[in-house]
Amino acid sequence: MTTPIEIIDSEDPLANPWRVALVRPDGRPAVHETDERYVMTFPHLILREIIMFQIVVIALSLAAILFNAPLESIANPVETPNPAKAPWYFLGLQELLHYFPPVVAGVVLPGLVGICLVVIPYWRVNLEGAPLWATPSRWKAPTIAASVILLSILFVAFRCWPIVIPTVIIGVAMFAASWARAGSRWQWLWGVTLPEWIMTWFVVIAVVLTVIGTFFRGPGWMWVWPWMDAPRG
């Protein structure tokens, strides 16, 4: 006894996910078939995993033989080393502290980044995957331009050039993408989605700040060139 599956059409399955199809208890959901090739996990995947693990172990062992982990003199609570640097993955944050009040650089900005990362898969714009300029809208270009300019002004007010410059560059690139022509070598730029633009902006800033904090900051958190001898302060 089979009853035909009743399909309810929907314009947008993301907006109305419960309206796509109704599967009756006595019906069977059709499984999406693919013509993909499958291989046995053993040996194809397992051997690759073992090789990957061995490469990691060998590379790290070589590093451990060649380079010693840093160890300075014993902790002295009354003598602050100059400069006092956190581990490299926090140097971006420490560099931010140079520009912003601690509550902004230490709590507000990292908190915002954390919240943004968590909510990524729950925001519709991230799920659509449509290129930024694919859907024409009267408000899109002015909104983006205003956001870029406002953010730039905000960071200029704090003299935070390592954020201003990537913001301006990404902003210009977003508009350049709308003119990228099919067939030209910049065509891929056109396909970039809004969330990808934002993530790229974040990554560029994180990398720039971390590199500056790691290599370009000397005693007193003053700017130094890494290829010159830092003055001892």
Partner: peptide
């Protein structure tokens, strides 16, 4: 310089 300076963040 008769000033007080912090070594960490300038």
């Amino acid at each position: 310089e008769s000033a007080i300076a912090c070594p960490c963040h300038g």
